[in-house]
């Protein structure tokens, strides 16, 4: 559905995206992760033909966006962080205006979409009277109007309260389930990505540092949690015997290559340490993400 090949984008001398190759297969919910300034929005801009790549090719729905933008975006809907509307016009008029940039849209279709997102009854009010949540629903409505096959969501939960974020998450899941849309989701909400996405790519300072299945990430062996009254002494012994390579936060240990929990337990019990518990902890997406992302270099004056 989306294919980026060796895409590079420079703003002056600054490299925003470097040699990005990415494939979003049809029918997937794909998460695009990265810190602020990692290049996510620039990559999305290139997918929508808003930002011109310095090098490389960007294909959406089988068409090159830079040369056949209209064909590529014919069945694409997009939502941006803090969606902007003509606040002085009604929600309905906004939908009419935006839909006419894609294709002729009937009033019945607008009514259908308004009902789907739950804005019925407020569609004729001016947008300036809408809450953040209602604006988010309106943004979703405008994205759904062209009956898209692909939805590109750039930080759709930004600015929403926890209830709004949860509602947005349920809506995205519903869109995938009921309408079978392919969804590209750029988000900082790692829990949201973990719940919704089947595949992710992680960008760090403009470069892709990971692309793979969320299930594989979670299946990877994570850290081991150890509960013992004397964590420092216990881990010193384990480290001395080469069973662990690292111990952090007074509760986590990292087993050495080929070493097992049983081995660690046996050693500690044999040395008369009270072991209240020792167990493998599942790796969360957050653990994985943080292990990948190196903080950007500190700014110097």
């Amino acid at each position: 559905m989306i294919s980026l090949h060796q895409v590079q984008k420079k703003f002056g001398a600054r490299l925003a995206v470097a040699d990005l190759t990415l494939t979003v297969p049809r029918g997937e919910v794909f998460g695009l992760l990265g810190h602020n300034g990692a290049g996510k929005s620039t990559a999305i801009g290139m997918m929508l033909g808003q930002v011109w790549p310095t090098r490389g090719t960007v294909q959406v729905c089988g068409h090159d966006v830079t040369t056949h933008r209209a064909r590529a975006l014919h069945k694409v809907g997009a939502i941006f962080e803090a969606p902007a509307f003509y606040d002085y016009l009604s929600g309905w008029r906004n939908l009419e205006i935006l839909s006419h940039y894609s294709a002729p849209t009937t009033a019945a279709r607008i009514r259908e979409v308004v009902a789907w997102v739950g804005l019925t009854g407020r569609e004729h009010s001016k947008v300036k009277t809408y809450s953040h949540g209602m604006r988010a629903r309106l943004a979703l409505a405008q994205a759904l109007l062209p009956q898209p096959d692909l939805l590109i969501l750039d930080e759709p939960g930004n600015g929403l309260d926890p209830e709004g974020i949860a509602e947005m998450r349920r809506t995205i899941a519903r869109l995938h389930r009921e309408l079978g849309l392919t969804i590209l989701l750029s988000s900082h909400q790692l829990a949201e990505v973990e719940q919704l996405c089947t595949r992710i790519a992680v960008l760090n300072q403009g470069r892709k540092v990971f692309e793979g299945l969320v299930a594989d990430v979670k299946a990877e062996r994570g850290r081991v949690q150890l509960r013992t009254p004397d964590f420092a002494a216990a881990t010193a012994l384990l480290r001395e015997r080469g069973v662990i390579t690292d111990a952090v936060d007074g509760k986590f240990i990292t087993l050495g290559e080929g070493r097992t929990i049983a081995e660690a337990t046996q050693l500690l019990v044999g040395a008369n340490f009270a072991v209240d518990g020792i167990w493998q902890q599942d790796q969360t997406l957050e653990d994985f993400y943080l292990s990948l992302i190196k903080p950007p270099p500190a700014e110097t004056n």
């Binding site: 933008r69 209209a70 694409v76 941006f80 902007a84 509307f85 935006l98 590109i152």
Partner: peptide
């Protein structure tokens, strides 16, 4: 920011 919204469409 409305220009970005418009230019996500095939016009």
């Amino acid at each position: 920011g409305t220009l970005r919204m418009i230019l996500s469409r095939p016009i």
